[in-house]
């Protein structure tokens, strides 16, 4: 049998290896590029986020204490795993979706940004405006493809381990990163 024919007969095996390689390394990669929730800050954004990697890098450079990693992801990233979405530390949610995702939020910390025109439910503050189409200062606009007709609110995750007062909380770094996002100091 000529070598050409031998090579052609390997094509099914080569295709199988291609698929296996993608699956195996995709799984390994996911495991090594992640860490446990107690050591990472996860920010999920209710919009397309073409600058997610860049924003994550900038926030990652500001991490401190026990935080090893900062993740910034659009909601679509968690399409197959809703649990990671619901347990995020910080959310950036458009105004029209705030009611739908209300159960994921913890109340804003007492005294946090009292002047900021928060989104309230039952007189409890849940969201601080972070992207406001009418504002001059838009620190996130180059990272997030937001809808110009909506205000976006920064919210704290009720299952976050980085909010003092939440069950099992290890520190209060969610508020630290919330300040950074609201100030644009990244």
């Amino acid at each position: 049998m000529s070598n050409i024919r031998r090579i052609l007969r390997q094509i099914p095996l080569l295709i199988i290896w291609l698929m296996a390689s993608g699956l195996i390394w995709g799984f390994v990669f996911t495991r090594i590029t992640d860490t446990d929730p107690a050591h990472k800050i996860a920010v999920y954004i209710d919009a397309e986020t073409p600058g997610a990697a860049e924003l994550a890098t900038r926030l990652d450079n500001l991490k401190r204490g026990g935080i090893r990693m900062v993740q910034v992801r659009p909601f679509t990233y968690a399409m197959l795993d809703g649990s990671s979405l619901a347990s995020a530390d910080l959310f950036i949610i458009r105004a029209s979706d705030m009611t739908a995702y209300r159960d994921w939020f913890a109340p804003c910390p007492d005294g946090f940004r009292p002047e900021s025109g928060a989104w309230e439910d039952d007189s409890i503050r849940y969201g601080i405006p972070v992207i406001n189409p009418l504002a001059d200062f838009q620190p996130l606009v180059e990272y997030v493809s937001f809808d110009p007709s909506e205000t976006y609110y920064l919210c704290f995750g009720k299952d976050s381990l980085h909010m003092a007062g939440n069950a099992g909380a290890v520190d209060n770094e969610a508020q630290y990163f919330a300040d950074i996002l609201l100030n644009g100091s990244f």
Partner: peptide
């Protein structure tokens, strides 16, 4: 060498190297 700003490209590179070596 994975960093937050090179994750998708690095994964592609790894799969490409693994596939080529395996083939």
């Amino acid at each position: 060498g994975v960093r937050p700003n090179n994750t998708p490209r690095r994964l592609f590179e790894i799969i490409a190297v693994s596939t080529a070596a395996g083939w």
